[in-house]
């Protein structure tokens, strides 16, 4: 077995051991419920940050209203379980898919602009979604929805997180991802290479929306209670902090950023409001010292999928130029 292959296998064994081990520790109550919830929160944040990375890191656009999609996923799935008594897995998928649909629809007008304006539009949609949720009595208005079943547990979060990361990774390292990165690198050249830039962006946006919706659904069914004020631009900013801490264009960075930041915020819980001072301060320090984040555009070798093995020598009977 080659060295890189055994490293890959080792990596997956560690992941598996992590999942099984955590679950066992939780089952035997060696880790208490509170810590378990923090661990679940880390997983949910990883899904959010990795999906945001698709837009901001790989596609190179600037979306700052991700909490809006999270809200949609949380509310749609909650309507599913509370009002229609759907099984959790169905509600989860419906939440993700409908959020993807909304993201796609929002993307159609939003991608007519780019840069700062896109940032403003995405944040605007974030605020409008929260504003609407506040005004719709069916979902409880400002009080939100209560009595969600406690369906989210460690295994659900763990499996969804790993699946999200693998799916995103396989997409990023495929024709889809190459097209996204090409758009980031030079949009005019990309369009001149026969790429329907708008359609590619919409795909990325819908995918990011899908996973943000899943994360929202998991989150709602973890806390069993959701209200509009949890999904304001402050939540979006939290995700941006994690994203930029970990680094743009790196899924490993997203995992790192979400884990470090979530953990840090928990550790700082005793500091009360100062916790909310420290987190932007950390963001500022990162930006000023490492503008690209901890792992900007870098991915460890063993998580990069292998290319298909192409024939080394291709016969060609044309003389080379010159």
């Amino acid at each position: 077995m080659s060295k890189s292959r055994s490293k890959r296998l080792g990596f997956w064994l560690v992941i598996l051991a992590l999942g099984v081990g955590m679950e066992a520790l939780g089952q035997f109550e060696i880790i208490d419920g509170y810590v378990m919830q923090v661990i679940e929160l880390i997983g949910i944040n990883i899904i959010l940050v990795a999906s945001l990375n698709l837009i901001n890191g790989f596609l190179g656009e600037f979306a700052i209203g991700h909490a809006g999609f999270m809200a949609l996923g949380a509310y749609i799935s909650a309507i599913g379980t509370v009002k229609f008594h759907l099984p959790f897995v169905v509600a989860l998928l419906v939440g993700g898919l409908l959020t993807a649909g909304v993201a796609y629809l929002i993307g159609i007008p939003a991608f007519k602009t780019f840069g700062d304006y896109l940032a403003v539009i995405t944040l605007g949609f974030n605020m409008i979604i929260v504003n609407l949720l506040n005004n719709i009595e069916y979902v409880g208005g400002p009080r939100g929805m209560v009595g969600l079943p406690k369906s989210t547990n460690f295994l659900w979060v763990f499996a969804t997180t790993i699946l999200t990361l693998v799916i995103l990774r396989n997409l990023v390292y495929s024709n889809y991802g190459r097209v996204w990165i090409a758009i980031r690198e030079n949009v005019i050249a990309a369009e001149m290479m026969g790429i329907n830039v708008n359609r590619a962006k919409l795909k990325a946006f819908a995918i990011a929306g899908f996973f943000a919706g899943l994360a929202g659904a998991l989150w709602g069914h973890m806390l069993q209670y959701i209200n509009p004020s949890s999904f304001t631009y402050l939540k979006s900013t939290d995700m941006l902090v994690m994203l930029y801490l970990g680094g743009l264009g790196s899924l490993t960075g997203s995992v790192l950023g979400a884990t470090l930041m979530t953990g840090l915020l928990e550790v700082l819980r005793d500091f009360g409001v100062w916790r909310m001072v420290i987190s932007p301060l950390i963001l500022l320090i990162i930006m000023l010292t490492r503008p690209l984040g901890l792992l900007g555009n870098r991915e460890p070798r063993f998580v990069v999928p292998k290319e298909p093995k192409a024939a080394e020598e291709v016969s060609h009977n044309v003389p080379a130029a010159r």
């Binding site: 901001n56 600037f62 700052i64 840069g115 700062d116 940032a119 402050l234 900013t237 941006l240 902090v241 930029y244 743009l248 009360g272 409001v273 100062w274 909310m276 001072v277 987190s279 932007p280 301060l281 963001l283 500022l284 930006m287 000023l288 503008p291 690209l292």
Partner: peptide, 23 residues
């Protein structure tokens, strides 16, 4: 630096001012 870094920094300053005042 890239413009995104600058805008994120501005966002960070904003949060810092709000929460620092509150704290």
């Amino acid at each position: 630096a890239p413009r995104m870094s600058l805008i994120i920094t501005a966002l960070g300053v904003s949060l810092f001012l709000e929460n620092f005042t509150r704290a």
